[in-house]
């Protein structure tokens, strides 16, 4: 009984602390926006419209659709969703390939000897330079963009997976062997969980690379998408419009990263030190 009350008190105090932290966070954020607003109004630069103008442009741009589309405008369906789809598809494929190949290479004793330098070189290539190659191979369109994203996003996942898989503790190897653990269980219940912290570090990096490459590939060769709209707005000197796209990309980056962090926190909750830093 006392335990229950204690727990409730603790939860409540945590909630209060969390709420005040949350409030402080947003206060600082709102303060920053106000400073931005005042500064831009004083500077009166055409390149830097005040945030209120950006927001009203954004509302007009994204939420002017009919009720049947939940008030989302066509822009959302023609540009934002395709962009996101390509970004996530490319990232997902890169993750599957990276973890799969990385596990195989990490388990093999000589595999990395053969491909290590090659991969180090591939990783060092700035992915946008391969856009022309993918463009002639896949044409202007989603194929080229997804290929660019995969090529850029796969290396952090793959190399981190190799590292993680290789670092499985020798006592755990012996333990699993002494139970005659069949390969699927060995990989699924020992090797991959042991490598997960490293893999997640790779996932975070590759997600931000995916977003960057989504934008780059759309800036260069695309008929739709956020990057395409961004560069069109700039060319048409519609600066508030350009800013709405920049802000949207910031929101997307923040949102996707937060989602991944939340997933990581859930999946890796078995790590002892993870519960201290919330």
């Amino acid at each position: 009984m006392t335990q229950v009350t204690e727990r409730a008190t603790r939860l409540r105090s945590q909630a209060v602390a969390g709420l005040s932290g949350f409030a402080r966070t947003w206060l600082v954020f709102i303060g920053a926006v106000v400073v931005w607003e005042v500064a831009t109004r004083l500077a009166e630069s055409v390149f830097f419209p005040p945030p209120t103008e950006i927001v009203s442009t954004a509302l007009q741009l994204w939420f002017s659709g009919p009720a049947s589309q939940l008030f989302l405008s066509d822009v959302v369906f023609d540009h934002i969703l395709p962009s996101l789809g390509r970004c996530l598809a490319g990232w997902a494929i890169a993750v599957i390939l990276g973890v799969g190949l990385g596990t195989a290479l990490g388990r093999s004793r000589t595999g990395m000897d053969y491909v290590g330098p090659l991969f180090a070189f591939f990783r060092a290539i700035p992915p946008p330079t391969l856009v022309p190659v993918f463009m002639v191979l896949f044409g202007l369109g989603p194929g080229m963009q997804v290929a660019t994203i995969i090529f850029g996003a796969i290396w952090p996942v793959l190399l981190n997976t190799v590292d993680g898989v290789r670092a499985v503790d020798s006592v755990k190897v012996d333990t699993a062997r002494s139970f005659r653990t069949p390969t699927p269980y060995w990989i699924g219940m020992v090797v991959l969980p042991a490598a997960l912290p490293k893999i997640f570090a790779g996932l975070r990096l590759s997600l931000s690379i995916s977003l960057i490459l989504m934008v780059v590939s759309e800036l260069i060769g695309s008929l739709n998408g956020i990057g395409h709209e961004l560069i069109s707005a700039q060319r048409a000197f519609e600066f508030p419009l350009m800013w709405t796209w920049i802000v949207l990309l910031g929101i997307l980056g923040f949102g996707l990263n937060s989602l991944l962090l939340a997933a990581e926190r859930r999946v890796l909750r078995w790590q002892p030190n993870r519960n201290n830093d919330g």
């Binding site: 503790d169 006592v171 755990k172 012996d174 333990t175 002494s178 139970f179 219940m189 020992v190 969980p193 042991a194 997960l196 078995w270 790590q271 002892p272």
Partner: peptide, 16 residues
């Protein structure tokens, strides 16, 4: 056959 190792903290799987 089963083996119990000296180093329990390394022998148990921390993720389970």
């Amino acid at each position: 056959l089963a083996v119990v190792f000296q180093d329990y903290s390394r022998s148990l799987f921390p993720w389970l």
